[in-house]
Computed example of a mutant assay.
Amino acid sequence: MSLPEVHLVAGSAAEAVRLAPVALAMREQQRLTAVPLATGADPDSVGRTFAAFGLTPQITLPSGTGQNETMSRFDELWAARTPAAVIVRDGLAPALAAFWRRVPVLTIDAGRRSGELGSATVHEAQCRLLAQVTTVHLAATPLAAMNLLDERVIAGDTLLTGGTAQDAAEFLAPATNAGRHRVYGTVVLGVGVERAQAIGPAVRYLAGRHRHLEVVRAADVAPGLEFATLLAQAYVMITDDEDLVEESLAAGCPVLMIGPASRHSETLHVGSTRLVDPDPATIASEVARLFESRVRRDAMAAGGNPYGDGLAAYRVAQAAAALLGHGQFPDPMPAHSTAGAVR
């Protein structure tokens, strides 16, 4: 008897990183058949990321020119090959297509919100709409779960699983030599081109004082194992990208974060990130402090990763199986549980 198919829809490398451990957990639990699905503007990049975990997308479906066309493509796919459930992260179009086909939708990293009063970004609006068609909300943090309750999501439909980026980092750790070759002076810059140019003076100033400094732009590194290796070896990350904050902490790399404190209050609380203004003088000063004292840098890393404990993928896989009548829902992640250590 064949196991129910669950389609794991990844539209970016960041989503593939978070869904790959779920596919592996499903394979281990042997209750469901995980079907990795590569979509988005660059499905080849998604496929390479899955490959780092020994997975090959069974379905490749490039996104359309807009939400409507993308949703139509998924509707055609699922009319011919209807899954028992669909797991997404940010994929509104596939979630809507599944919803209209009466296919249950599970959303990982559910409940992430900017926390900024009056926020009206497109992404924020899509996340709130996604919550309306989600069957089971799999939240990474207690704050995310509370956000869903504030939006009147039924408490019984929300499960605190933790984030699966930690699971991904632990799976890839043997291949990346994580914790054994941390390179002093390697700074990863995970910001857009315009912001990178704006803080260029900080980089030049630091290069003049620290000849060992090596700055690597995250955008210049291939996704998957190569990027995971970079994070496992980096001394510090400077970024305004929410995904890179979580992935860096999962790899034991502390973060100097540019942007609103409300987006990552959990990491600021444990001390593994530090908020910096996007001006050259401030960034140069903060990086110099970490270079001048390894203790300061390691104290940040010791805060760990408040987004997961390395067991999130198993909870997600078990929750999907329970939803489809195969076993019981897992216990939630303990609210105090974090992963990470000085590396």
Results as ranks from 00 to 15, higher is better:
L3I: 01
L3Y: 05
P4A: 13
E5L: 07
V6C: 06
H7V: 03
L8Q: 04
V9Y: 01
A10S: 08
G11M: 09
A13G: 09
A13K: 08
V17Q: 02
A20P: 03
V22P: 10
V22I: 14
L24A: 06
A25Q: 03
A25L: 12
T33E: 13
A51V: 01
A52T: 04
G54D: 08
L55G: 00
I59Q: 03
T60W: 02
G64T: 11
G64Y: 03
T65V: 14
Q67S: 12
T70S: 11
L77A: 08
L77W: 12
L77I: 01
P83W: 04
V86Q: 03
V86S: 03
I87Q: 04
I87R: 05
L96H: 00
A97V: 07
R102C: 00
V103P: 08
V103M: 08
L106V: 09
L106S: 01
R112L: 12
S114I: 04
S119E: 08
T121Q: 01
H123W: 00
A125C: 09
C127W: 04
A131Q: 13
A131F: 04
Q132E: 14
V133S: 11
A139L: 02
T141Y: 10
P142G: 00
N147H: 15
N147Q: 10
L149A: 13
V153Q: 14
I154T: 14
L159Q: 02
A165D: 13
Q166S: 14
D167H: 10
E170M: 15
F171L: 15
P174K: 01
N177H: 13
R182N: 08
V183F: 03
T186Q: 15
V187S: 07
V188W: 01
V188K: 00
L189A: 13
V193M: 06
A196C: 04
L206C: 12
R211K: 13
V215H: 00
R217A: 12
A222S: 12
P223K: 12
P223C: 11
G224W: 02
M237I: 08
L249Q: 05
V255S: 05
S262N: 09
R263Y: 14
R263T: 11
H264Q: 13
H264F: 15
P280D: 09
I283Q: 10
S285R: 11
E286Y: 15
R289C: 10
M300H: 06
A301H: 05
A302K: 15
G308M: 14
G308K: 14
A312I: 13
V316E: 03
A317N: 06
Q318H: 02
G325L: 13
H326V: 06
G327E: 05
G327Y: 11
P334E: 09
A335K: 15
H336W: 13
S337F: 12
G340C: 10
